[in-house]
């Protein structure tokens, strides 16, 4: 069951990502990215991380991507012209991507024994969820990175406000 879900939604995510690259209209690309996000959410859930799955759907698919679509609609962006891209991307990009893929595969396969296993959906119908553990960890051992990230986001918001103000 878990394997079947993984294959279906993994393929869907890859297909969505490829479609994102090959579509010429920005709105179709944005919608393909939504498909990728949703498939990733299903994969997270099948790994027992139901909170992460829900956050993925609410934050990425439901808010960030809606803003993308909103901006595309607002600017009324048309179809893009296909170019050949820079040569650097071909020379450095493709081998780089292959190298990262190989490295990640190697690392995950090596530490496979150390990672736990989970039963699909077992955590979803449990009475308790792992949100308590996540929040405990987030506010004790991971407090500094958490706060630094929030300050970073605050700075980004302030920067956006400053940039928008100048044009008025």
């Amino acid at each position: 069951m878990q394997l079947a879900l993984f294959i279906i939604f993994g393929l869907l995510a890859v297909a969505g990502a490829l479609n994102l690259l090959f579509q010429r209209h920005p709105i179709n690309s944005a919608l393909s990215l939504v498909v990728v996000m949703m498939s990733l959410a299903v994969l997270y859930w099948s790994l027992g991380a139901e909170f992460l799955a829900a956050a993925q759907v609410i934050v990425y698919a439901g808010a960030v991507m809606v803003l993308f679509v909103f901006v595309v609609m607002l600017l009324n962006a048309g179809e893009e012209e296909r170019t050949h891209g820079s040569r650097v991307a071909y020379i450095a990009g493709i081998p780089g991507a292959v190298a990262i893929f190989g490295l990640l595969t190697y690392v995950f396969l090596r530490s496979k024994g150390g990672l736990g296993t989970t039963q699909i959906g077992g955590d979803l119908s449990n009475v308790s969820s792992n949100i308590r553990d996540i929040s405990h960890m987030l506010f004790t051992s991971l407090l500094l990175p958490f706060e630094v990230t929030s300050i970073l986001i605050l700075i980004a918001i302030l920067g956006a406000v400053v940039l928008a103000r100048k044009e008025v």
């Binding site: 439901g62 809606v66 979803l124």
Partner: peptide, 15 residues
């Protein structure tokens, strides 16, 4: 009966 039922409602609404 899902243990993150409220998040499911919010997520589906946002989609």
């Amino acid at each position: 009966d899902i243990n993150i039922g409220l998040l499911v409602v919010l997520g589906v609404t946002s989609i």
